[in-house]
Design a protein around this nucleic acid. Structure first.
Lengths: 297, 297
DNA sequence: GTACTCGTACTGACGAAGACTCATCGGCTC
DNA sequence: GAGCCGATGAGTCTTCGTCAGTACGAGTAC
């Protein structure tokens, strides 16, 4: 059950004889003969019929060779892929972002990464739960994660900047008149919250724990974009990272007072390769200072 | 570049550490360690990142593992196919028939074969040229062939019976009144002939060489069914094996005088296996004596 | 903070199995 | 009989496997 045996069998089928196959493979004839014999003994089937002029695949032999060819070509592809990865970057980079962090910065960084390594594919998992994020990162499925905090912050945690949280108010809400919204002013408001045990809901609860320990829950959603849209429709108010506000809703958004912000920390998996390092560098170069202003219309 | 290395790498990716992988594979830990190291050295790439808690695939490693999995599973399929072929018949039987021989007998025999070996597929090449037939048979692409004669008749030639040749006349042809048609009566008739150098055309020329050495050629076709149809339309007369006459045209068909018949010889390829032998036996059991009678309406 | 234990992967030495080569034999075709 | 084919046996060499021991990091007790 060695690839060599498959290659020898395929060579015999192609060349038509053991001798010719041995020449193709640059080995002596007995070697090929022995390998095929061993393969047939191991499988308990005659793969080739012996004729005076050479070897010819039997009915089962042909069926076997079809699969063997797949195996050999897949092996070649595997080797070629790995060798290509030695000079160029090839493969799939897996990234996870929590709480919609980097909504504005990620596309730019990923675009630059793709321009530099065209054969590198990138997959982004959005909004995984904190526990799952930890697990994925530990297990090595994740190459890079953007998160707010890491209880057991490893050596490979890099502080990229801070993300300011803002409230989204319904159209016509009276607090839209102010430049900043005091958290105490929102007491009693219904809230568009996030999935239980999600990091976003944790931030919201933490922020409200002084003014409104048991906030009224209007709805729970997974995506920040959905929360903004529902809040705009008047379902309630919500609290999201500033960069997660979709275009067209800026006029419903206000910073809060006292200011709420979370660090954006990039965690690179242990044993990071050039792809992870490159993406980290590109993310660093992005601008993380909150420059967009949300003022009354 | 061994399948074992692929399996080891996949086991490490699945188990998460060399030790656990070694346990899965029922080998000692250093063995797995050495194999992976050898693989990485050979490929010149780091497939796994070493962490204190185990090994984790890198970006290139994941791309490599995807292909490696294809190779390993194809290898398993190949082995399973061959082993299945040891107890049951699995694969594709390739059959060639010349001059439409066995048009009436083949379906029955192939049906019985399929009932006995459900996983055996059969492909039939019809009407190959004599030279190509010989070549296919020699090269081992063919498992069984039905032909009229084999100049270098091998030991594996089996005489199944004889095929009588009949003429097909145009509707309303005066010779339809007779039970048999004398070849001399057809002198000067235009003929629907067959492809140059085909066995069917050879039979026709051989039959006519005394009465009409240079027959008028109305048309040349490849298929006997086409020849019958065209003859029925009045394009000319033709000479085909009796079993090749399609249903509905029997009333235009007459035996010739003196009788023309060709032996039907089944040639089994050297090193024939159970599939070939079984089909040969089934063909023997079919009735090859010409029982259909073509009489004036 | 230090020391200890535990788990991890790596290294080297040695034995066993397998692959390769050479020379030779038997069968068949021409 | 010459020439080609595959099969076989003996000898050499590479490779894979195991066992021992080493090195490194994480977690824990003090």
């Amino acid at each position: 059950m060695s690839l060599r045996q498959y290659e020898y069998a395929l060579a015999i089928a192609e060349a038509g004889s053991v001798t010719a196959a041995a020449e193709l493979l640059h080995v002596a004839q007995p070697s090929v003969s022995q390998q095929i014999r061993g393969l047939e003994r191991e499988l308990g089937v005659e793969l080739f019929a012996r004729t005076p002029t050479g070897l010819v695949p039997t009915v089962v032999g042909r069926a076997f060779l079809r699969e063997a060819e797949v195996a050999v070509s897949a092996s070649r592809r595997a080797r070629a892929t790995a060798r290509a990865g030695a000079v160029e970057l090839v493969g799939e980079l897996v990234v996870a972002v929590q709480m919609g962090f980097g909504t504005r910065q990620l596309p730019g960084a990923l675009g630059a990464l793709r321009r530099r390594f065209p054969r590198l594919e990138v997959t982004v998992f959005e909004e995984p739960s904190s526990a799952e994020l930890e697990r994925l990162c530990r297990r090595g499925v994740l190459d890079l994660a953007l998160m707010a905090a890491c209880e057991r912050s490893p050596a490979d945690a890099h502080h990229l900047g801070d993300e300011e949280f803002v409230v989204v108010l319904a159209a016509g809400h009276r607090q839209l008149a102010a430049d900043r919204v005091g958290l105490s002013e929102l007491e009693g408001e219904p809230w568009v919250r996030f999935d239980r045990d999600s990091a976003l809901d944790g931030v919201l609860l933490n922020v409200l724990r002084n003014n409104d320990p048991t906030p009224t829950t209007a709805a729970r959603v997974s995506q920040t974009a959905t929360a903004v849209r529902w809040a705009a429709q008047g379902l309630g108010v919500t609290l999201v990272p500033a960069s997660a506000v979709p275009h067209g809703h800026e006029y419903l958004v206000r910073p809060v007072f006292p200011a709420v912000s979370q660090p954006v920390i990039a965690v690179v998996r242990p044993g990071a390769g050039p792809a992870e390092t490159a993406l980290l560098e590109l993310l660093r170069k992005e601008t993380w200072t909150e420059s967009a202003s949300f003022s009354p219309a």
